[in-house]
């Protein structure tokens, strides 16, 4: 005679689910960083040699379509301001990995506009990470 197995109902403990979920939210809030990407109007240049950046950048410099210069999203007057700003940010760095400075510039801008900014970053001791799109 076959014995009928009684189906056990195992209750899933859901009492702590709320706590876990809120802990996850707090974890993401604490760990996440608000993007400092400057919202500037520019068209990035294209190249077949660009790669995804793995290193973290100490500062973000951008030159928009009108030639306005931004340091970490804040407009600055001249390339010299970029140099002083980057220099100040690099004082607390220890290794070369912490010297990366992101540089965004409109593809159509002439040399007279962007080259002083590049030189300012180099003078301040930053390693330039020139942002562009992949040319496939």
């Amino acid at each position: 005679m076959a014995l009928k197995k009684k189906r056990r109902t195992v209750p899933v403990p859901v009492a702590s689910m709320g706590d876990i979920a809120f802990l996850l939210i707090i974890f993401f809030l604490v760990c996440s960083e608000v993007s400092k990407e400057p919202d500037v109007d520019l068209i990035s240049p294209r190249s077949a040699h660009v790669k995804k950046v793995e290193s973290t950048v100490v500062a973000r410099v951008a030159v928009d379509v009108n030639g306005r210069i931004y340091l970490d999203g804040v407009p600055v007057n001249a390339a010299k301001d970029v140099e002083w700003g980057v220099r100040a940010l690099l004082t607390s760095t220890i290794s070369d990995d912490q010297r990366h400075v992101q540089f965004k510039c409109d593809a159509k801008l002439p040399k007279e506009t962007f080259e002083p900014v590049l030189q300012a970053i180099a003078e301040a001791g930053g390693i330039i990470e020139a942002v562009g799109d992949l040319d496939e």
Binding site: S47, V50, H100, Q102, F103, A122, E129, A130
Partner: peptide, 12 residues
């Protein structure tokens, strides 16, 4: 956000 770029260490 993962931007694509080229590194350039310009001597100063």
């Amino acid at each position: 956000l993962k931007v694509k770029s080229i590194p350039a260490d310009l001597p100063s």
